[in-house]
Design a protein around this nucleic acid. Structure first.
Lengths: 322, 322
DNA sequence: CTGAAAGCGCTTACAG
DNA sequence: CTGAAAGCGCTTACAG
């Protein structure tokens, strides 16, 4: 029904191979034929059918981006740059929010097997047993998906340590750590390790709330921290949502910030989206996104890649530290 | 190289047609053969190649979502629900941020022609001449893309009118309107129309700043409003980013909110992302997303659809009105 | 440089 | 109910 390469070939008086070569800009085609073909294409309003060429070439030029939820500043920003970078390489991004659906990762892997996508970026944090990743181009953020997949992360340990020292320099005597524990082995855990080392180094008493947490439980977690450690004069909060909720909780409890309580957050790349100016260890989201895509494309092409790529955060002063 | 339907057929001792029927759950296949086929599939670790079936069936099961920028609360939320709803119908969403790239809409239409996607949701606002939309399943938000495409919108006029009346009831004598003018004919313009009608009805002096604005110009636009109409005691702000920036600007100018200046915003669905609690005409983003996908799928299937779908907003009181 | 032909891996009338 | 065959619209050795 629709116009195909055959119709063009017939009208131009050449073989289908030649038309194909013109479409794909192969220089081998002689100029006169090229012109004829182009004319025929225009005349017939021909557009190549990608499904066909993809089947032949066995590549989809699509990649999947799996995030826990797009409707979250960090992931939205990540999605934005992932799409932008992928686009530069001629890839499209299929967006998938795993939400709480544990099986979404399996599904994406299935999609790779089914040749719906060429590869995937995983930003979710579930654990799986016995997943077959043979020949599945996957890259990740903050953790190696299966101990083998390349991933991009930030300098969690050093940045946390520096931030904590800054707080201590600014007078904090009782510094706490508030976070949500990753479900899997993740570089995010380095933040707690840094905290423990600092506490140790300065002879402080550890005040930690760092349990596995689901989206939506921020408020109760923040509250429980304040109940346990209401006398903290400084808190390092790991994670954007948690930081925000914690800030609000502290305010509701009439804490003077930063006078009585200083707060530093890891993740706060979103100053433009809220008017609360947290002092923040800012992750280089854009660079993380671009790197992760470059890694993925290398994997798709079968090239060697680094397993661990560490990018540097930036310490940004806001109004929650002295 | 990879295992195909032929290999399965051979191992199971049936024809490829039968294997295909098993894959697609056609009940016609006799149980004994079905079992054999399934066994063979498992044994060979067979996964059907989607590219092939898509070519045959001439459907990609992908749709494109074109937003100005995903890294924005409204669009992120929209993307989230669009993906969720599309998923229910077995469609995947290819995310595209148009950014300032005017030609992205054309590109998406090209992709439909090239059979990369089955259809598209447009949430961008550029104008095009002579685009051929014949047989292109496209749906939109807040405006009809070409006067023909179905779209989903909210009750802009009524909601704005109600909000303004609320402000007047709460004592506002000098109510202004701050917005960014849509580049194309859009239902968003109804907000300004409602404002003008209210001003007229109550015999007020119109105070309007509503020019075409690019992403990033919020601050200067907000400032220019305050310079022109510094004596306003109430402002209706159209748009999320603008509301937030305007609020900050007013605060910097030491306006007491809501005592001296009341603010109502159209769009503020993002209370969880910032701790600024604006009184807001809240758009039903989730419902808009779901409706837009259902419309699109109808179009893809060639069914009739309504051209204009209007959903109802909710007036949510925050701390910026008395 | 280029045409004819095989083939990518499915689906689907068709005939039985 | 099911097998053999045609065909979806391309790409790509192959031979010339």
């Amino acid at each position: 029904m629709s116009v195909t390469i055959k119709d063009v070939a017939k009208l131009a008086g050449v073989g289908v191979g030649t038309v194909s070569r013109v479409i794909n800009d192969e220089k081998s085609v002689i100029e006169s034929k090229r012109i004829k073909v182009k004319q025929a294409m225009k005349q017939l309003k021909y557009t190549p059918n990608r499904m066909a060429s993809r089947l032949r070439r066995n590549e989809t030029r699509n990649i999947a981006l799996l995030v826990p939820i797009v409707d979250h500043p960090f992931f939205a920003k990540l999605a934005y740059y992932v799409e932008d970078e992928a686009d530069r390489f001629g890839y499209s991004v299929i967006l998938v929010s795993s939400q709480q659906r544990v099986d979404k990762e399996r599904e994406i892997i299935e999609r790779i097997h089914r040749r719906e996508v060429d590869g995937a970026v995983f930003v979710t944090h579930y654990e799986h047993e016995g997943i077959d990743l043979e020949g599945c181009p996957i890259v990740s953020i903050d953790r190696s998906f299966d101990g083998n997949t390349p991933y991009v992360t930030s300098n969690n340990y050093d940045a946390t340590k520096d931030a904590l020292k800054y707080m201590i320099e600014r007078g904090c005597k009782k510094v706490g750590f508030l976070g949500s524990k990753p479900l899997v082995k993740s570089e995010v855990s380095e933040r707690e390790r840094a905290y423990l080392d600092v506490v140790n180094e300065y002879g402080l008493t550890p005040m930690i709330v760092n349990e596995v947490m689901e989206h939506g439980e921020e408020k109760s977690v923040a509250t429980s921290f304040m109940e346990k450690f209401g006398d903290a004069d400084g808190v390092f909060v790991s994670g954007y949502s948690l930081s925000q909720v914690f800030y609000e909780t502290a305010q509701e409890m009439n804490k003077k910030i930063p006078k009585d309580l200083q707060i530093v957050s890891y993740d706060g790349v979103f100053r433009q989206w809220h008017n609360l100016s947290l002092t923040t260890v800012e992750q280089p989201v854009e660079e993380m996104a671009r790197q992760v895509i470059r890694l993925l494309i290398k994997k798709i092409r079968g090239e060697e890649t680094a397993t661990r790529t560490v990018l540097t955060t930036r310490f940004v002063l806001g109004k929650t530290t002295k």
